[in-house]
Amino acid sequence: MRFEISVLDESEISLCQDLAEDRNWTREEEKWRLLFRAGTVFGVRAPDGDGLAAMAVATRYGDTATAISMVVTAARYERRGLGALLMRHILATCGTPTSVLTATAYGRPLYERLGFAARGAVTVFFGEPVAGETGLTRAATPDDLDTIAALDLEAFGASRREILGELLTRHGLGFRIAEGPTGALGFAGAWRYDGITLLGPAVADGPETAIALITDLIATTPGPYRLELGDHQTEVVAWAEKLGFAARFGVPVMEHGPALRDRRERQFGTIALAFG
């Protein structure tokens, strides 16, 4: 049986959602719309004519890195190499030296065979805390995109300007900026999908700034909340747990190719696991 890879467009979003549901994932409409607008969605159409046999998404960040996500195979087409087929296609065509992803326990052995190596971990927290504004941050506007993109580039090691612009102007619930005497100290954004507000991305010069930014997002957006924190951010993890967030699960962050020249100590919240 021959399987061919196609590039899907946003009109086919329901095919991706149906396949996600086939593996007991939620439909996450807003996240899929952002994935389609910021990345390239690849699909393998099912030979039996019933939707997709497999899918994967590549979100490119400039000429430096590609985030790979949503690597899913339909239950009835398992163990036919479709995940590996899609992964090899993305690695061969993405046009960046480095690729990043967060791995499920099921997918990690495949990624390791392809040369990915773990370089940290992220824990996902959920909660519905209440917070008052700190007065230490201000609401961001589209005019702040240059500042936000520059802070993010230094922290992440690759340009995510396009997706940050989508969140700031179309998808997000709001961004906050913290400023000091010499300029911006950090930013944080929030966006909503699947009935939950994800508090991220967040970049800051240190834990105190990050906590102020996230606190002000909680004060100005509806709950419940999801917060994805690197395990190296022990001070913010302790603060989140004290505020009432509960850890739900953790995943390794994996990288293929040259290591990103990032500053992980400044990363305090992901855009979402799907975006690296």
Rank of each mutant, 00 (worst) to 15 (best):
N24A: 15
E28R: 13
R45G: 06
T26F: 15
Y77I: 00
N24T: 14
T59A: 12
R27A: 14
A56F: 04
T73P: 00
E29L: 15
G39V: 02
R37Y: 08
M70F: 12
S69K: 04
E78V: 01
Y61V: 04
R37V: 03
M70Y: 10
Y77M: 03
A58Q: 12
Y61A: 11
G39I: 01
V72W: 01
R76K: 13
L34P: 00
L34T: 08
A38I: 07
D63P: 08
G43L: 09
T40V: 14
T40W: 05
E78T: 09
I68E: 02
G39F: 01
G51V: 06
A46M: 07
G62F: 04
V71M: 13
Y77A: 01
Y77F: 15
G62D: 06
E28Y: 13
D48K: 05
D48H: 06
D48Y: 06
G49R: 01
Y61E: 09
G39L: 05
G49S: 05
A54V: 04
A54Y: 00
K31G: 11
V72R: 06
A54R: 00
F42I: 03
A56E: 05
R37Q: 14
R79H: 13
G49E: 05
R76Q: 12
R27F: 04
V71P: 01
W25S: 08
A54F: 01
A53D: 05
M70E: 12
R76I: 00
E28C: 12
W32R: 03
R76E: 12
A38N: 09
A74R: 02
G49P: 02
Y61T: 04
T73R: 00
V57H: 06
